[in-house]
């Protein structure tokens, strides 16, 4: 592999899936914030709160079906992803301690070597999967069973849905900052958003363990 070599990090289907999720997440967050806090200008963007709610609910259907189809068609890739993010080693804890060297006031001599996803991405991935599941589990009765469940249960679902969404929004904002703005980490931006490729030398530095397995295959 020469100095200008690139490695394929995210397949076309993964990138499409990520784009789809990004768009519906923005729609869900915007409409949700709009009608939860009665922010008229947001509601009016969608034609009033009732329509914003329709957009919210059908975006939620895409939010569920999109990943479901992706998982069905890419089951192996998804299993590998789950495998990677759930495999938390000493190096991952080391990354967390140093925060990958991305935070200016944490002094770092050396960041431990990382898998295809670094420890931060692993935690994010795990939290997003759990968060999405909670949103789906609570959102379903809020929509479909709203007339038949006990009021106490409905209020409980609204609370979980609300707090999970707040956590997810904060996580996604953090993810956006690191993936698109932070000068050290945004180097992988185009890999997910555009062509799927990352420079080999960046991969060698950021995802040393994964890069090593790629080298072995090579």
């Amino acid at each position: 592999m020469n100095a200008n070599a690139k490695v394929l990090k995210h397949s076309g289907q993964t990138r499409t899936m990520h784009w789809l999720h990004l768009i519906v997440c923005i729609l869900l967050a915007l409409t949700g914030i709009g009608f939860y806090w009665d922010i008229n200008w947001i509601n009016n963007l969608f034609g009033g709160p009732a329509n914003a709610s329709i957009v919210h609910r059908w975006s939620a259907v895409i939010f569920v079906l999109g990943p479901l189809l992706y998982i069905l068609f890419n089951f192996e890739r998804f299993s590998r992803f789950v495998d990677t993010i759930s495999n938390f080693t000493k190096d991952d804890f080391g990354w967390i301690k140093t925060m990958g060297g991305y935070i200016p006031f944490i002094k770092v001599d050396e960041v431990p070597p990382q898998d295809k996803y670094n420890a931060g991405q692993k935690v994010l991935g795990g939290l997003i999967i759990i968060g999405c599941l909670l949103m789906i589990i609570t959102g379903f009765p809020m929509w479909v069973w709203r007339g038949v469940v006990a009021p106490g249960f409905l209020a409980f679902c609204y609370n979980i849905h609300f707090w999970t969404s707040i956590i997810l929004i904060l996580l996604v904002l953090g993810h956006f900052f690191l993936a698109a703005i932070h000068p050290k980490s945004r180097v992988e931006f185009s890999a997910m958003m555009i062509d799927g490729y990352v420079d080999a030398d960046i991969t060698a530095e950021h995802n040393e363990k994964w890069y090593a397995t790629l080298k072995e295959v090579e």
């Binding site: 009732a50 709610s53 329709i54 919210h56 007339g147």
Partner: peptide, 17 residues
């Protein structure tokens, strides 16, 4: 939720409103 308990359909509004 309230529209489902109202016996006379006196409550107006759809979900989100």
């Amino acid at each position: 939720h309230c529209t489902s308990v109202c016996p006379t359909r006196a409550i107006h509004g759809t979900i989100g409103e």
